[in-house]
Amino acid sequence: MNKYSDKVGEAKRRLGIVGHSAGLTRAIEVALLIAPTDVSVLVTGESGVGKEAFPQLIHQNSIRKHGPYVAVNCGAIPEGTIDSELFGHKKGSFTDAVTERRGYFEVADGGTIFLDEVGELPMATQARLLRVLESGEFMKVGSSEVQRTDIRVVAAT
Rank of each mutant, 00 (worst) to 15 (best):
R101Y: 04
R101C: 04
R101E: 07
R101P: 01
R102H: 08
R102Q: 15
R102M: 11
G103K: 05
G103L: 07
G103N: 08
G103E: 06
Y104W: 02
Y104G: 00
Y104E: 03
Y104M: 11
Y104P: 01
F105M: 09
F105P: 04
F105Q: 05
F105G: 06
F105E: 02
F105V: 04
E106G: 07
E106I: 00
V107S: 00
A108C: 02
A108R: 08
A108E: 01
A108W: 04
D109M: 10
D109W: 00
D109H: 15
G110F: 11
G110E: 07
G110A: 00
G110D: 00
G111P: 03
G111W: 00
G111N: 08
G111H: 05
G111V: 06
G111E: 06
T112V: 05
I113S: 11
I113K: 13
I113C: 05
I113R: 01
F114H: 14
F114V: 02
F114R: 02
F114C: 11
F114L: 06
L115H: 05
L115N: 08
D116G: 13
D116K: 06
E117C: 10
E117N: 14
V118Q: 01
V118G: 08
V118I: 15
G119L: 11
G119D: 10
E120G: 08
E120F: 14
E120P: 03
L121G: 10
P122H: 05
P122M: 09
M123W: 13
M123A: 13
M123G: 00
M123Q: 14
A124M: 12
A124F: 14
A124Y: 02
A124C: 05
A124H: 13
A124K: 14
A124V: 10
T125V: 15
T125K: 09
Q126P: 10
Q126N: 12
Q126M: 13
Q126L: 14
Q126I: 13
A127L: 15
R128Q: 14
R128A: 11
L129E: 07
L129D: 09
L130A: 02
R131A: 12
R131D: 11
R131K: 13
R131C: 07
R131T: 05
R131W: 05
R131N: 11
V132Y: 09
L133Y: 01
L133C: 03
L133A: 13
L133Q: 09
L133H: 03
L133F: 05
